[in-house]
């Protein structure tokens, strides 16, 4: 699966590196390797950089883009809502994040996803996302 052919996002906004599993309309597992050079680590106290929580939600939303069967080029994806977001532990430089999203249902162009970002079997962030294709 060619990530760049599917998602319109580009560096540094593109936050998905690899797809591990994909069942369009149902479930996606993607991966993001967080490197020390990420632009969002700039400005953190020395030695205490962590991935900002909202970017974990963005990673899950981008992984959710692969639930769509067709390419998202030319489309505009709108994050319409976030519910029950929990940040259980921080993500650090060097972490290999597993981004798992499952579709719960859709109506009138709006889709509800259940997302979990984890690292080495430990949940870092869980949330319900509402995504709309404009």
């Amino acid at each position: 699966m060619d990530i760049l052919a599917h998602l319109p996002h580009r560096a540094p906004l593109l936050l998905v590196d690899r797809l591990l599993e994909r069942e369009p309309g149902l479930r996606v597992v993607a991966e993001k390797l967080v490197t020390a050079g990420e632009p969002f680590f700039q400005g953190h106290p020395a030695g205490r950089a962590q991935v900002p929580g909202p970017l974990l939600l963005e990673m899950l939303a981008q992984a959710g883009g692969f639930l769509e069967a067709g390419t998202l080029h030319g489309a505009s994806i709108f994050l319409a809502g976030v519910r029950d977001a929990r940040f259980h532990a921080p993500a650090f430089p060097g972490d290999r994040l597993r981004l798992e999203v499952a579709a719960e249902g859709a109506f009138a162009g709006l889709m509800r996803l259940q997302g979990t970002a984890s690292c080495e079997g430990r949940d870092l962030c869980t949330a319900t996302l509402l995504v709309k294709r404009l």
């Binding site: 319409a80 809502g81 719960e104 249902g105 859709a106 109506f107 009138a108 709006l110 889709m111 509800r112 509402l130 709309k132």
Partner: peptide, 26 residues
């Protein structure tokens, strides 16, 4: 709003076992 509509569609399916297939039915 439209987010509430999706929540209702999913709730109706789970609680009453009735599917609202499309916007016309909605």
């Amino acid at each position: 709003d439209s987010i509430d509509a999706l929540e209702l569609v999913l709730g109706i399916e789970q609680v009453f076992g009735v599917k609202i297939e499309d916007e016309a039915a909605g």
